[in-house]
Design a protein around this nucleic acid. Structure first.
Lengths: 252, 252
DNA sequence: GGAGTTCGAGAGCAGTGCTCTCGTTTTAGA
DNA sequence: TCTAAAACGAGAGCACTGCTCTCGAACTCC
């Protein structure tokens, strides 16, 4: 179980490109390759279905094999381990969430508040539509888990977009180099900024990260039942939170 | 696995009172009762040790039994199911967290900002000291899980304290009955207020819940690795967040 | 002291992830 | 086109899990 990283990597380097198939040089040519691609997709699909109704904890490789009418050992020809299959679902989940959010932001107004509103509601909407997938992405990880490198990029897509939005509204004043945070924090902010390619203001960075944690904390509380249905439906509270965050983000 | 609620309840009504033994009429008298109480405690202790180093996913009843040198079936004399044992750990965890936070708040200054600072750092400190326990309390729940009634009270302790702190600093103005939020949200706030016995201002309630989700979202991100060590160590960012929250909470 | 309850240990069932073997199918090279 | 090599599916098997049942021993209470 803990050989997650090792076992997952060789798989990912081979069979993951079908999801976003632009980097793949050519479509599967031989019959065997065609069948392999198809069966891989079927396995993922069946696994996703099981995930949707049982959660990650109940996702059994044998059950997936049973659903597909094949021997459990045959699945191992396509995914070296259960963890590898789950990693695939994680990557797909991050991409699905990012697609959903980007689409929402692209159809919304270009102003900061509109972008933020679209993003926040998109995150919550996706999470409520795919609760188990959200739990898989942002819930309790496997102990000793280190995110496989291939999951990092998809996971980062959405936060990159958020930081870009932040920088667009509140760029760091180009003039002076004086920072308003501790040097350690400034270095961390710089690292993020360099990675993303933009540089929000220090204060905007603090507000942004705080609002980000609040957003995912909210969705987590709502989905995982930590609120004991006190705020059910939570739409009104969520809207109030989004509004408050909007003021903090954009009313300087 | 999904018979959680049913199986856990009868257990909880019987064997849970040892944790906070005030309601218990008398200490165990007969040798058998003594042995039972002792062995129950030993099982919980062994389970907690396994939880601390393997997480809830790797907490195996058989392994706990092995650690104690007893047959796995014997454990079922004390806990009707693995879920019941985990529920016990959850209840203890909530109480441990609440104890930790209350102690921190009681030794801190009585001013709102000081109370908040103590609470926030206490939550994070406890979570970092007991990451798997925190994950058990606030991470992904079992699908279809409905919090057993006996876990609700311990879970509520800490938020009650927070709401009391909120109301102490920003009580709802007694004069007029005009609310600043939607009727639905006002009703939910009222319900919380009645449960706790105090009534914070509407705006304080919004800020409070938002700050609360941000706090637990932060800790979750930090613990579950969702940040990919971008903010490691996260102390500076956390302090900045706490400070920002403090301004929102107390600078009206 | 004896009836009745509680307990610990062991076997057993169904399920899991994963490995290995074995015969079949498909591919690739001569 | 034929053949060696690679890929594949199915099945048995191992070690593990939660949980149930039975059976003899220990203990409680009358």
């Amino acid at each position: 179980m803990l050989s997650f990283v090792v076992t997952a990597l060789d798989f990912l380097h081979n069979g993951l490109m079908e999801a976003h198939g632009e980097a793949k040089p050519a479509a599967p040519r031989t019959a065997r390759e065609r069948a392999r691609a198809e069966l891989t997709a079927e396995i993922v699909e069946a696994a996703r279905a099981r995930l949707a109704e049982g959660g990650a904890i109940g996702l059994s490789l044998r059950a997936v094999a049973r659903d597909l009418g094949m021997a459990s050992s045959a699945v191992y020809r396509y995914f070296p381990s259960r963890d590898a299959l789950i990693t695939r679902l994680i990557v797909d989940g991050y991409n699905s969430l990012a697609d959903h959010c980007e689409s929402a932001m692209n159809t919304a107004g270009t102003q900061g508040p509109q972008q933020w509103d679209a993003l926040a509601h998109a995150v919550r909407g996706w999470a409520k539509a795919n609760p188990h997938e959200f739990a898989l992405l942002y819930g309790t990880p496997v102990p000793g888990y280190a995110a496989p490198p291939d999951t990092v990029d998809p996971a980062t897509r959405i936060v990159v977009r958020f930081v870009q939005m932040l920088a667009a509204s509140r760029p760091r004043s180009a003039g002076s180099a004086e920072r308003t945070v501790t040097p350690e924090l400034a270095a961390q902010f710089d690292f993020v900024g360099e990675t993303v390619g933009v540089a929000p203001d220090d204060e905007a960075f603090i507000v942004g990260t705080s609002v980000w944690t609040a957003l995912f904390g909210f969705v987590g509380f709502e989905l995982f039942g930590s609120w004991n249905n006190t705020f059910e439906p939570a739409d009104h509270l969520f809207s109030a939170h989004v509004e408050l965050a909007s003021r903090l983000l954009f009313e300087v």
